[in-house]
Amino acid sequence: MQTETEIQSGGGQPVRCLLGMLGTDVHSKGIRTIAQLLRDAGIEVIYLGEHNSVKGMASAAVDEDADLVGLSFSSAAYVTYTRQLVEEMKRIGAQDIPIMLGGIIHPDDHAELREMGVRGIFGAGSTTEEIVEFVRSMGRSQ
């Protein structure tokens, strides 16, 4: 059985993508713009905004049944915070929910982030299309 939305969007289920920031970072311009662009690409964005705690973000991913978690960073503390989030997700049994990063991510850190299990890294120069395509690919098949 199909709902109206399925018919509108050609049969696919909207991907549920959590977007938010950790720490004291206030540079939310990018994440706010990408939230709107993802909406326009048919994604359901659960927008958490700035200043989330690691614990709060992990539990939101669970409660919201997110298909993936997107983090934006303009602060250089991203490696530490991402590691904390990965560990917290593991602790609550949500390690299978993929994580993607955006913002200012230095190429020297890519390997370490991938090793932690970060699935998508969209630093400077990433296009909207690349991000949308990645988010879509994270939707679970039913």
Partner: peptide, 9 residues
Amino acid sequence: SSGAVLGDR
């Protein structure tokens, strides 16, 4: 688009 920004949280 059938997308949404759910921002109440």
